[in-house]
């Protein structure tokens, strides 16, 4: 794990100039009681594009963002956002960033229009300008029909859209999106992804937290994987995946009695450990190099093992975690 992290960090340091970072943190720590929620995070987020922060619940993603957005003071360490210190120059940072997510929300009792007008007023628009800006944003986010409905009556997807609309009343230089698609249906999720791409094309840097590798993969130019308050790997999506093998191979044999034989053949051909799934016919395993997979399947056939299904997929977040953290694997061994 350390080898991978060092390797990936080496890449990120070498290829970027020091002035191009939107966010730069050094040994950022936040302690709640005796819980080290964020335990020495070093991040370097380049300007422009999407930076993904990937991790399970409780990994410290939200706490990190809250510190970067000046809502929470770090216990120790430093963080520069757009070149300004989040503690000493909190006011400047606040005027340049916007955020939306589970922790920074609109007023559910007010309507969509009222929320946007209020935010526009607080940014300094006149009443007339605020109403005009609100109408513009509602139209852009396909919410005109819901303009006069209370936000608490919005669906999940509409809710996420109005939250984001509220964050771009004035165009932020940097936007924090905390788990923007958690709990959304695929269609709403795609809309949010489109919006994120639109933000980036308009020149806003987006820092996005997510629990889904797929989402980070689709959107993020670079990804930091966080676990227990620490960055355990950093790099492009391709680099991360390469670090845990190219993917996961899933095989189902026709006859459960042949599974042990299949495991033996696959392990000897591919050189990684196979996992016997709960389903008595199913096998899954990490694959270092997908090129070897056809040969392995051919050998199964040669040994007279009939397969009903096989698939080679992206590693899931679980698999990335198993590969990156010794601890998670350890737990599973004990269980």
């Amino acid at each position: 794990m350390t080898r991978i992290a060092v390797f990936l960090k080496g890449i990120s340091c070498g290829s970027m100039g020091p002035m191009s970072y939107a966010i730069e943190t050094h040994d950022l720590v936040r302690i709640f009681g005796d819980n080290r929620a964020v335990d020495g995070v070093d991040l370097r987020v380049p300007s422009g594009g999407v930076y993904g922060v990937l991790g399970p619940n409780g990994a410290g993603k939200t706490t990190t963002i809250r510190m970067l957005a000046t809502l929470l003071k770090p216990t120790s360490g430093t963080a520069l956002v757009l070149g300004h210190d989040v503690v000493a120059e909190a006011g400047v940072v606040r005027s340049k960033v916007a955020m939306t997510g589970q922790f920074a929300s609109l007023d559910e009792d007010l309507t969509g229009t009222e929320n946007l007008v209020m935010l526009a007023r607080l940014y300094g628009f006149s009443w007339g300008q605020a109403r005009q800006r609100s109408a513009e944003l509602l139209d852009a986010f396909d919410l005109t029909d819901a303009a006069d409905r209370q936000v608490k009556k919005y669906s999940g997807g509409m809710r996420r859209r109005i939250d984001i609309a509220g964050s771009i009343v004035v165009r932020p230089d940097l936007m924090f999106l905390d788990e923007p698609t958690t709990g959304l249906d695929p269609r709403s999720r795609n809309q949010v992804w489109d919006i994120v791409r639109a933000l980036v094309s308009a020149g806003t840097t987006v820092l996005l937290t997510t629990q889904y590798l797929d989402e980070a993969d689709q959107l993020a130019d670079r990804i930091a994987v966080i676990d227990r308050g620490r960055v355990i790997a950093e790099g492009t999506s391709g680099e991360l995946k390469a670090s845990v093998g190219s993917g996961a191979l899933h095989v189902r044999v026709a006859d459960a009695a042949q599974r042990d034989e299949a495991v033996r053949v696959l392990e000897s051909t591919l050189g990684t450990e196979a996992v016997r799934e709960g389903d008595p016919c199913a096998i899954s395993m990490r694959v270092e190099d997908p090129v070897g997979v056809p040969a392995a399947l051919a050998r199964l056939r040669d040994h007279g093992v009939a397969t009903t299904e096989f698939s080679l997929g992206q590693p899931s977040l679980d698999e990335v975690f198993l590969a990156l953290t010794g601890e998670a694997v350890h737990e599973e061994v004990n269980a």
Partner: peptide, 26 residues
């Protein structure tokens, strides 16, 4: 809808010029 929203959101972002900060009274 998705594609349409994409362009409209980009346009809305483009017109998000920043006014002078709100006064404490306002």
């Amino acid at each position: 809808a998705g594609t349409r929203m994409d362009t409209k959101v980009a346009a809305a972002l483009g017109s998000g010029a920043r006014p002078a900060a709100a006064t404490p009274l306002s």
